[in-house]
Design a protein around this nucleic acid. Structure first.
Lengths: 202, 202
DNA sequence: GAGTCCATCCTACTTAGAGTAGGTTACTGG
DNA sequence: CCAGTAACCTACTCTAAGTAGGATGGACTC
């Protein structure tokens, strides 16, 4: 008998196994990076054979996509909750930003995963990725729409992309400076977004 | 004799061959995407054998990196030239933005390549990538420094990242709308950056 | 022209890892 | 107790990254 203390590998219902696989994959993708992560390793860590991964997620891209979808959903949830009941538009913006910068600090793996999206450009999953991203920008675009003529929808959408891109990049930058708190980051972003550069015309 | 009309494959000095390889690789990476592009194919299109690619660029990552470096340099050159002699800071900003949005429309391949950067996170080349990116933000940061207390260097740097991220994302968005001219994109970005959202406090 | 040196270039491999064919076993409801 | 099926496995194939070791054009001496 080789198995000594190892609890005998049990069968599991699909849903549960799926959750488990995503959990492990999230960790491995984050640690090794998408390209260097191997399906064999993930399978082994889950305690299951490789074909199971393919049965459930169809491809390596598919597995990454599932992880990303989950992280996006979590991020969206957090930001959405943060802005309900904000007394003003300015306040809603500030709260949303803070929620975001807190998220990227506390849910490291989730955020790291979202940065791997780009690994999928040029693959069939690219469209799906665009969808998950839209989730984010649509929320912002809705908030934005109050600021522009309702006809100029293009501008509202552009502005939403602008904000999302700005904050994502700022978030990546923050990782290099642990002393930059979510509050500080929010401050930087808020000043830029709300007041713009013209304020200090000296 | 198998070679009929094919001009006999000539030997070339290293520098020239290198340029040729980068040129081909740029095209292939852009068309197929980084992951789906194969070194064999690139080698064949160059008219050379695979070990030559490795001799010159050491790895697939290395080849991509070389392409990216070149594109970044081109982008930097264009934006830098555009702002010399601008009469005001506002004008410098506008000119720089316009130059950028023109670049991404006219130099499709170069720009597409820059979007593939993320494919390298988690690889040894990641640091180098960060360097090429810094090129861009440093330029902006220098412009920015005039707007903030000289002590608050952190804020200047953050703002530079903010601007770069915002514009990159906006540029990606533009690709989906051919009717959005570089001038319009510049307008959107300029309004957000210069005036901010507070202007329309209704 | 004949010899020699080295940078350019090649053929022919190894290896890692994505993805698959086809069969086996544990649980579930009758 | 006996299907029937969902969960699972072993043992492959195949593509593409990366490499070992050798061949060759051509520039430069003598």
């Amino acid at each position: 008998m080789l198995l000594v203390t190892t609890a005998k590998r049990k069968r599991m219902p699909r849903a549960e196994r799926e959750r488990q696989m995503i959990e492990v994959a999230e960790r491995v993708f984050t640690e090794r990076g998408y390209a260097s992560a191997s399906m064999d390793e993930i399978a082994e860590l889950v305690g299951v054979s490789k074909p199971m991964l393919y049965e459930y997620f169809h491809s390596k891209d598919g597995l990454l996509l599932a992880c990303i979808r989950q992280s996006r959903a979590a991020l969206r949830e957090v930001t959405e909750r943060s802005i309900v009941g904000a007394p003003s538009a300015e306040d809603a913006l500030r709260r949303g930003l803070l929620a975001f910068f807190v998220f990227i600090r506390e849910r490291r793996e989730a955020w790291s995963l979202l940065r791997h999206e780009m690994a999928l450009i040029g693959t069939p999953a690219a469209d799906e990725i665009e969808q998950t991203r839209r989730q984010q920008t649509d929320l912002i675009a809705a908030l934005m729409s109050g600021y522009f003529d309702s006809e100029d929808e293009l501008r509202a959408e552009a502005s939403a992309e602008f904000v999302v891109g700005a904050c994502e990049r700022l978030a990546i930058w923050c990782e290099r400076f642990p002393e930059v708190t979510p509050e500080m980051a929010t401050g930087y972003a808020m000043d830029m977004l709300w007041s713009g550069l013209s304020r200090s015309t000296r």
